[in-house]
Design a protein around this nucleic acid. Structure first.
Lengths: 344, 344
DNA sequence: GTGAAAGCGCTAACAG
DNA sequence: CTGTTAGCGCTTTCAC
């Protein structure tokens, strides 16, 4: 079977502890050069790999991180997971993925499993769910995780005051709105997410800021960040305010179905309606019309979350608690200036 | 901190072993009813949860499964992961996600980590990569996994003769082609995946079978299953064979950019060109035109993979080695019958 | 039906 | 610089 440290120590003719010290990557304890060489050779010969469970049992913490998302199918979260998993792997960590499907019970049960497994870190990629009981449950689980020396990091704005790596939501939405204003649009609607979701609130605030500054009337319709919700929100919006010429959407995920609804109503994008998204989902630049959107480096946020968690664990983390990641606007095919466009 | 079994045994006034036996969910060893009650009460009071690492260290296997995918951003794989993780959680297992980005080195390194971690099962959601060295490496890692009692399951056709849960690729592609033939199309092209990928080969075979049976000439262009590759393949196809009126695509992922390329060339779908995909990615039914496609229950394949792995572990798995999951055609907006349609 | 003890594989405190 | 020893938390003989 797999060879253990005791096999290596026997082969090298040293004690267990010497073998352990010789193989310690940190090389914290002094070991004779020749001895180390002998041990390393034996280890190589035997294809020795330390057993993470044994290490974990001792260290009271498994070298593993977990990412909690609302929906792994949503490219927004998938991209965060990808970035986090890649960074984690580079540090020798494996990554658990927990997709709650926005179900508080499911989320609680996941966090409970994670706590029991003594994962080194939990990254909350999603905002808190709208459920008091679940939030209290999470809080106590997180306290337990902290007690055994595990780290918890938020990758979205949350009520809890955890270390946070987050997108510049306000700035991004402002960028989107300003882009449309510069193109000459005046009737600019915003399709937001649910009221209680902070990410959505922040993006809404950015939009409102830009609109107020330009002395334009805000027009807000609400989706729920799921794929299909953009379509229904668009339908409501158009019924209510058919004079709108541009729509800023709080997420690319919703923007897809905004585009679809527009297509179904025979409204051409961008000739009849400009649309700007938020997120810049990788791969979607191949769709048509390619979406003008606010670019977030989601993979980097995931990776930063892992680094942050690791820093928390080894005590090297420094303020500020909330780190904001910059965004930028990528202009593609779905927006154009307000000119003599054929209106309904 | 977290309470251990010894805390429970002390509280209940019994020995460690009795406590362990009383709490054993299998209830394999006889325990006095009252004793068990006392132990269970103590455990509840102390909010006791067994430590998976200690259990794993002893059982030589961590109650954890891993899914290896090419690209977690691809909804095809994300959906498999989601199904697998849900089923795994129902059995008390957590799920590692390993996105290789189609890089053999990365895949090998993941499998190595998984082996060291003694994961209970590894699910290969992706076909084998085109790299002899990596394949040999994987083979030896998998042998090691089997040696410690771990399971390995394939969720796509592979050279290795592992237990397999797989889509009916041949039947699905046949369904797609037959659908177009029934609609009256004669010039039907197929956008396949890379030649060495078995999933693609099988779908290609299904298409070829239907075409040959109908005495129609097959027209094949090749993409690589990435998001963007549908567009370039479509461009090549149209340049070569502009008389084509329908396209079957080997994956929804590629179909998105097929649609985009068609849109860019001002070809309307389905009026100028019918398109049928493969996969039925959840959420994409909201795009416009909604894609006619071959429906695969990917979440079920992931879940079946987990059940299969668990059966392997407890020795209850029975033939056949390869289990084929049925598919169906969902007809939406992207296909229509060949009538007097305006051709270029 | 219960308890004592060994051991899974590793690290670190303690002695030398 | 090296070795001995204890123990992380659990399950499972082996004895009674």
């Amino acid at each position: 079977l797999s060879s253990s440290l005791s096999d290596v120590s026997r082969q090298a003719g040293v004690s267990l502890s010497t073998a352990s010290r010789a193989l310690d990557p940190e090389a914290t304890h002094p070991v004779n050069k020749d001895t180390r060489k002998r041990v390393v050779e034996a280890a190589t010969r035997l294809d020795y790999r330390p057993n993470p469970m044994a290490q974990g049992l001792r260290a009271r913490r498994l070298k593993t991180i977990a990412v909690i998302v609302h929906e792994i199918l949503d490219p927004y979260f998938a991209e965060i997971v990808r970035g986090a998993a890649a960074e984690a792997a580079a540090h020798g960590y494996l990554t658990f993925v927990c997709s709650s499907q926005r179900d508080p019970a499911r989320e609680s049960s996941y966090v409970d499993m994670l706590r029991r497994s003594r994962v080194a870190a939990v990254l909350f990629a999603a905002g808190e769910l709208d459920d008091r009981r679940a939030r209290a449950e999470i809080a106590s689980q997180v306290a337990a995780i902290h007690r055994y020396g595990g780290a918890v990091v938020a990758l979205a704005p949350r009520v809890e005051r955890w270390p946070t790596e987050v997108t510049d939501n306000v700035g991004g939405a402002r960028l989107a709105a300003e882009h449309l204003i510069e193109l000459g649009h005046r009737r600019i609607a915003f399709i937001a997410g649910p009221e209680h979701v902070r990410t959505s609130k922040e993006r809404e605030a950015g939009y409102l800021g830009a609109m107020l500054e330009a002395a334009l009337e805000p027009i807000i319709e609400r989706g729920d960040f799921t794929m299909g919700s953009g379509a229904t929100a668009t339908a409501r919006l158009l019924q209510r305010r058919s004079e709108v010429t541009a729509i800023a959407v709080a997420s690319d995920t919703m923007a897809v179905s905004v585009l679809a609804e527009l297509g179904r109503r025979r409204l051409r994008v961008p000739e009849d309606m400009s649309v700007v998204g938020f997120g810049d989902m990788p791969g979607w630049e191949y769709s048509h019309p390619a979406l003008t959107t606010v670019r977030i480096d989601l993979a980097e946020i995931g990776a930063a979350g892992v680094r942050r968690a690791l820093a928390q664990i080894d005590g090297s983390d420094r303020p500020p608690r909330v780190r904001v990641h910059p965004v930028s606007l990528v202009s593609r095919e779905s927006t154009t200036s307000l000119r003599a466009v054929s209106r309904r």
